[in-house]
């Protein structure tokens, strides 16, 4: 059995240990917000946070998740009550077809402070994500103009 938390909730997983994290999230826990675009870590659509770090969940077997803290797009806010980063994407047109969006949001949610308001630094930090719709500029604006969340306590 593999134990970890997903979006703050304790989860126990009992299936094949080498099942990809993305499949466990989508199939076993019904968290379909996380998307598969390429299955080889190139497009970033499947990005989730593992212990607050962005990880492409299509490349990670679930057996590496023991004791980890996993966060997906579903943790950022609800459809009727979007979080501040999501609201900024709504405001500045950061989503078009929406398929790359959950992954982009996850990486953007933990951007280092040094990128604040610096479009070039934001572009560099998000360069692991592919988007074919927007030309990226509205995503950069959405991230740059999002209100910064209060720093979380750093628990180890």
């Amino acid at each position: 059995m593999i134990s970890f938390t997903v979006n703050g909730r304790k989860r126990a997983y009992k299936g094949p240990p080498f099942k990809r994290l993305i499949d466990v999230l989508r199939e076993d826990f019904g968290l379909t917000g996380t998307k598969e675009g390429c299955g080889e870590g190139e497009c970033g659509a499947c990005t989730v946070l593992v212990d607050r770090k962005p990880v492409t969940s299509c490349l990670v077997p679930v057996c590496q998740m023991e004791g980890r803290r996993i966060e997906t797009v579903e943790s950022l806010g609800r459809e009727q009550r979007l979080g501040p980063l999501q609201s900024s994407f709504l405001e500045h047109g950061g989503a078009q077809c929406g398929f790359c969006t959950p992954g982009v949001l996850m990486t953007a949610s933990v951007l280092p402070k040094s990128t604040a308001g610096d479009p070039l630094a934001i572009r560099r930090a998000l360069s692991g994500h592919l988007c074919r719709c927007t030309g990226y500029q509205t995503i950069v604006e959405s991230v740059a103009k999002a209100p910064r969340p209060k720093p979380r306590s750093r628990k180890r």
């Binding site: 806010g77 459809e79 979007l82 994407f89 709504l90 929406g98």
Partner: peptide, 21 residues
Amino acid sequence: LKRADAPQKLSGTAKYIDDYR
């Protein structure tokens, strides 16, 4: 006007075909 379908897409509730059980 803000994109009508954006809140679902931003919260992960928009259902693409592989999201249906």
